[in-house]
Simulated assay, not measured.
Amino acid sequence: MSTPRFLDLPPGVAPQKIETPLGTFAALEALPVSGVIERWPALLVPGLTGSKEDFIAVLMTLAHSGRRVVAVDLRGQFETPGPDDREAYTCPALGADVDMLAQVIGGGDPVHLVGHSFGGLVAREAVIDGRTRFASFTLMSSGPSAIEGPRAINGRKILEEVPTLGLEHVWHHRFEPDALANDVSDEIVAFLHRRLMSNSPTALVCMAEQVLSMGDRTDELRQIEVPTLVLYGEHDDGWSPETQSEMAARLGAECVVVPGAVHSPNVEAPETTAAALIRFWNAAEKHFLDTRSNVM
């Protein structure tokens, strides 16, 4: 389970509602506390049972690089409402939401896109569908196809238990024991409970189905000319480090392994993760500008 390192928002980070033609999305927006926005913005997409709060520990470091950085709740997640229609929660449908969010946030500029875990599969759809021009794409702790290992077991439990036993049962028998075993503070336990109970059960089940059955689209992604980074913890228990390393090689993408991290380097090693993202984003922007000047 990923747990935000803290829930108090640092200076420069504020809750927002992002209005799009496809609906309103809850977000956390980070802006530089000093200086001006001089670089392209970034959009951060959370995983299956996560939310925008999973990025709190990296938001201000990323924003201090001169960017507007926005973390969102996907449709049906936590504070973003969603319908009971199962078709709203397929990866292509959620990818279309990401497309629209990026277009609104970018305001005409390319956007750096980061997808964590299931969010990486969703974000990949947005990159492949070609509707939006992205400055770069980062797959964070996200693999080429269906999730593996212990997290696949957890996903199957969601499929089995949420429709018949409900979210409260899943909390008391899965999420709460995990949080207590990891000595999570009372404040964060209360937050995790509120977050799980705020999810659309339909969304949670449909997203679990997607993460357990997703096909490999690596070859399609490679055809898209966007700078790509594969970043993961050295002890990842979702997609194995070997699986993600092989995916990076197939993509011809840069690969960063975060020492000591498991499945959420944004929470477990925020400074290392933020530094890697900033360096990658800066290089992607420089490459774009150099390419444009050569064309001109």
Rank of each mutant, 00 (worst) to 15 (best):
A248E: 04
A274E: 05
S240E: 05
S245Y: 09
S240C: 07
N266F: 06
A249C: 03
A248S: 12
G260C: 08
A269N: 08
T272P: 00
Q244D: 07
P270Y: 01
A253S: 07
S264P: 02
E246Y: 03
P241W: 10
V267G: 03
V257R: 13
G260T: 11
A274P: 03
T273H: 02
E246Q: 14
P241C: 15
D237V: 09
P265T: 14
A261D: 03
M247Y: 10
G260Q: 10
L251T: 02
E254D: 14
P259D: 14
A269V: 04
A253I: 00
E246P: 01
S264D: 12
V258E: 13
E271N: 11
T243N: 14
R250W: 04
E254L: 00
T272M: 13
E242A: 15
P259L: 14
G252L: 09
V256G: 01
R250L: 00
G260M: 13
S240P: 04
R250N: 09
V267A: 15
P259Y: 12
E246N: 08
S240M: 03
W239G: 00
V258N: 03
G260H: 10
S245D: 14
V257D: 04
N266M: 13
T243P: 06
V262D: 06
R250Y: 12
W239Y: 13
H263L: 04
A269I: 04
P259M: 13
V256Q: 11
E271W: 05
